[in-house]
Nucleic acid binder design. Structure first.
Length: 876
RNA sequence: GGGAGAUUAGCUCAGCUGGUUCAGAGCAUCUGCCUUACAAGCAGAGGGUCACUGGUUCGAACCCAGUAUCUCCCA
């Protein structure tokens, strides 16, 4: 039989994923005999497709989940999507437009029909893509934030919080997205640095014709909404204007000059136009001074009739026009460039309008306090911990959450308005009617008299319930699933949604189940390109994830992503990384190919006790190290640990030690033990590389129908007495091999030229025990013990002993002398530094005794080395 | 403007409470090898005043202060 020289992932990946599913390995059910391990997926946008960020994030989740499953836990990874109201609605509106349908021509019901049809057709593509990555989700549990059960959960929570007085309706300054035509929460607004213009406009002082007050503004188109000009009472330039009135340019309306210390004297001209409807600070100033509010904007950002001028024009067009007109009228004093910030919509990218608006809010103070505490006291641990600071600052300054959105795609707010303008909040219209009759005292009220609030709830108002709602914890708070799987264990997500989502889930968990939603939050970095730029469609710098999987295999891509992904650090994606992942797959494949290719001769004795003993010790030590990395969520280090174990220790050292000569058979015991080692390695690798490990697992030997590495027991370290000594002895032996190899390289001898080795050492036992290994790895025909340096040989020192490789006619005496002298000087320098340390009375007195002892040992070792080197030099 | 974090090899990062081998890994680089498991490979080598300046200490990449630069969060 022949095994392909290179591993071809495409041939096997789909097969194994299907088998795992057929076997039901990913399915989880409440099982009191097992410890639960639960992860809920950060639900991707239902309209989304897989991008590099998802690949990283879901690889990490899958590694955690697969390992937990192998550890014998009831591993449950719940997949699903969220409805992403604003993004999806925008997408559907655009699609309808292409078909010649305008949203405004549709009723709400008609629009939702279109939206759901679209979701059925295209939604959830991303979940199918996750399967290609190997994600071991329990697909039977797939949830969607807008499905009936989850919608009900959202409405129940809204009603509950309203009853508790935490949800309220009020007029507040909100972030208005004129493109999406909806309010946004503070977290959905992204500040952007821009170069803006500051316009200096002069307002004529009433009754003092020819006298002007100059204000500076970046938004001249809002002067029609001005209700005052404010100056600092301590500003001597304007003392004469206290109590005066000024006239708005072009418009002529008179507004008062008000005094407030809020106005900073050195910014702009020290005179501030006050436009309460269109600026948060102005609004607060307006409230304080009892000023009216004039809102001159329509929902789409165009000017309304209250503006009087430029009515119907978009805000930016109006700005251009008014600047021209102001200039012509002689009211534009000057224009300055200055660095400023504009707020933009996270979703539509439109410039946000601060706008006074009637919205629903959720009070945060009561929810934030306990949510902060559980992070402070590590009930919920953030990885890396530096995010605790960020979290704290946000939680301490959190403002009420604007939860209403002027959209249709989402859960419609269960508030019902009575004809008299008051409202009731209830889960259903029927319940609302009962309440409404009671509240109004009008028993004749009918359903048709009630009008439900037009708005829907923020998508995050669904997502924050996710860890509970996916287990139906609202509909049925005492069901077996939620009791068993909640709280979940680990959450893996990006720091960009720490507040949007993570913080709010913690709040919801504590408020509705009196328990945190998860114990650990692993925050991944952002995937960037090699130049450190964010991956974006515009830049075209993001590779297609599915292409990558095709090209390098899912295992290659998974490991490639993890190689350079320490928690919380951005990942600079480079194709080299997935290439390295693919190469690693191939390395593993070839190790398998070697072992599988051996013929067995049952008559052969077992010659590899030292190699086996060593690799067993190495394996145990590495498992301990690996588990530590996992406990600390150091995924990159965990991977690198197994990577080196497989590549360096197993392939480069162990297999080379036990490998029979070409086409020679192997003894049965070595084959048995080596196969066992490989199986252990497959288990350790499986969370990272599920496909190739499963393939090799089955190719290696016949397996029972349920016998998959996917559900094999996670290896446990088995401490063996004397393991440290075993590792140390082999290290010494390998140092000798290294010495010979270095000489081969330096002398250009090639790997196969037969050489002999002479050793001047006290530790002849080492040479006896490891004779076979040393000869094989260093390609030596003979190893002998000598008392004097043989003539015409190259020397090296390893572990305090001298070794000689006789090389008749190839010795450059001068070069040898130089090399040894250099090494000697280095050793002497080191000895001196140790001596100095030991001569220091304070060191000997203050340092821990074992430390001093170690320094003494160092000194002895170095002195042995110096002696050996000096003798070698003398012998030359 | 306020806050947090970072600065270690060409790149990406480790370096746990200051003290094992005068600073480690992977990738990249250089040299030599197509040695029948693997050239997607093998063997070997080079490479760092631990941002800078002071301080504490017997001893500092690690602790303290200041400076510079960068990143993130919030205004």
């Amino acid at each position: 039989m022949s095994i392909a020289k290179t591993y071809t992932p495409a041939d096997v990946e789909a097969k194994w994923y299907q088998r795992w599913q057929e076997q039901g390995f990913f399915k989880a059910k409440a099982n009191p005999r097992k410890q639960p391990y639960t992860v809920v997926i950060p639900p991707p946008n239902v309209t989304g497709v897989l991008h590099m960020g998802h690949m990283l994030n879901n690889t990490i989740q899958d590694v955690l989940v697969r390992r937990a499953r192998m550890q014998g836990k009831e591993a449950c990874w719940v997949p699903g999507t969220d409805h992403a109201s604003i993004a999806t609605e925008a997408k559907v509106v655009a699609l309808l437009k292409e078909q010649g349908i305008e949203k405004k021509d549709l009723t709400r019901e008609q629009f939702l029909e279109h939206a759901f049809a679209w979701k059925e057709k295209y939604g959830g593509i991303i979940l199918e893509q996750l399967k290609q990555l190997g994600a071991s989700c329990d697909w039977d549990r797939t949830r969607f934030t807008m499905e009936p059960e989850l919608t009900e959960a959202v409405l129940r929570v809204f009603v509950d919080l309203h009853q508790k007085g935490l949800v309220y309706r009020g007029v507040r300054m909100v972030n208005w997205d004129p493109l999406g035509q909806t309010a946004l929460s503070d977290e959905e607004v992204i500040p952007k640095d821009v170069m803006a213009k500051m316009y200096h406009l002069r307002y004529e002082v009433v009754g003092q014709e020819g006298q002007f007050l100059t204000v500076a503004t970046s938004r001249p188109e809002t002067i029609m909404a001005d209700v005052a000009v404010a100056v600092n009472p301590n500003d001597p330039r304007y003392t004469h204007l206290h109590g005066a009135k000024v006239r708005i340019p072009l418009l002529g309306r008179e507004i008062p000059v008000i005094l407030d210390e809020y106005v900073s004297i050195d910014f702009g001209t020290g005179a501030l136009k006050v436009t309460p409807a269109h600026d948060l600070n102005d609004y607060e100033l307006g409230v304080k001074h009892n000023l009216p509010v004039i809102d001159i904007l329509n929902n789409d950002g165009s000017l309304n009739e209250k503006a009087v001028l430029y009515v119907g024009q978009d805000r930016f067009a109006a700005r251009r026009n008014i600047v021209k007109d102001l200039e012509e009228a002689g009211h534009l004093v000057k224009v300055e460039e200055y660095a400023s910030i504009v707020q933009t919509s996270e979703r539509t990218k439109a410039v946000i309008e601060p706008r006074l608006s009637l919205q629903w809010f959720l009070k945060m103070e009561h929810l934030a306090k306990p949510a902060l505490e559980v992070v402070e006291n590590d009930t919920v641990k953030l990885h890396p911990a530096k995010f605790k600071n960020t979290y704290r600052v946000w939680m301490e300054n959190v403002r009420d959450w604007c939860i209403s959105r002027q959209l249709w795609w989402g859960q419609q707010i269960p508030a019902y308005y009575l004809p008299d303008g008051t409202y009731v909040v209830a889960l259903t219209a029927e319940e609302a009617l009962i309440q409404a009759r009671e509240q109004s005292g009008n028993a004749d009220l009918q359903l048709s008299d009630l009008r439900q609030d037009e708005d829907v709830l923020d998508t995050w108002f669904s997502s924050w319930l996710w860890p509970i709602s996916v287990f139906d914890g609202f509909k049925d708070p005492d069901n077996a699933d939620v009791n068993y799987f909640y709280p979940t264990n680990d959450l893996v997500t990006g720091p960009d949604i720490l507040f949007f989502w993570v913080a709010r889930m913690i709040m919801a968990g504590l408020e509705f189940r009196k328990e945190v939603p998860f114990r650990n939050v692993y925050l991944t970095g952002i995937v960037r390109d090699a130049q450190g730029r964010k991956m974006s469609k515009q830049l075209g710098n993001s590779p297609d994830p599915l292409d990558l999987i095709k090209q390098f295999g899912a295992d290659g891509v998974r490991t490639g992503m993890l190689f350079s992904a320490p928690a919380g650090n951005d990942l600079l994606y480079d194709e080299k990384l997935v290439e390295q992942g693919r190469n690693f797959s191939n390395k593993l494949w070839n190790a398998f190919r070697l072992i599988k290719g051996w013929e067995v001769d049952a008559a052969l004795p077992f010659p590899n006790d030292k190699a086996v003993e060593w690799f067993g010790a190495k394996l145990n030590a590495t498992i301990v190290e690996l588990d530590e990395h996992f406990e600390k969520f150091r995924m990159s280090d965990a991977l690198m640990t197994v990577y080196k174990l497989v590549w360096d220790d197993f392939c480069s050292e162990y297999l080379e030690m036990i490998k029979p000569a070409y086409q020679a058979p192997i003894d049965p015991e070595t084959l048995r033990l080596t196969t066992g080692f490989l199986e252990t390695l497959l288990k350790l690798l499986h969370p990272f590389m599920p496909f190739i490990t499963e393939e090799i697992w089955h190719e290696l030997q016949e397996r029972g129908p349920k016998e998959y590495v996917c559900v094999a027991a996670w290896p446990k370290a088995q401490p063996v007495a004397g393991a440290a000594e075993v590792l140390a002895r082999m290290e010494k032996a390998l140092a000798i091999v290294g010495g010979v190899r270095t000489i081969r390289n330096q002398k250009g001898l090639g790997p196969n030229k037969p050489l002999t080795l002479a050793a001047k050492t006290d530790d002849t036992q080492l040479l006896t025990d490891y004779d076979g290994i040393i000869r094989k790895l260093a390609a030596l025909t003979d190893v002998s013990v000598v008392t004097e340096a043989p003539a015409a040989s190259v020397c090296f020192v390893a572990g305090g002993a001298e070794f000689f490789v006789p090389l008749e006619g190839q010795i450059d005496l001068g070069a040898e002398k130089e090399r040894l002298t250099k090494e000697l000087e280095y050793a002497q320098g080191f000895r001196d530094s140790v001596l100095k340390k030991l001569a220091n009375e304070k060191f000997v007195a203050n340092a821990k005794p074992d430390l001093v002892e170690r320094e003494r040992q160092k000194l002895a070792d170095t002195e042995a080395k110096i002696t050996a080197l000096e003798q070698s030099l003398a012998a030359l």
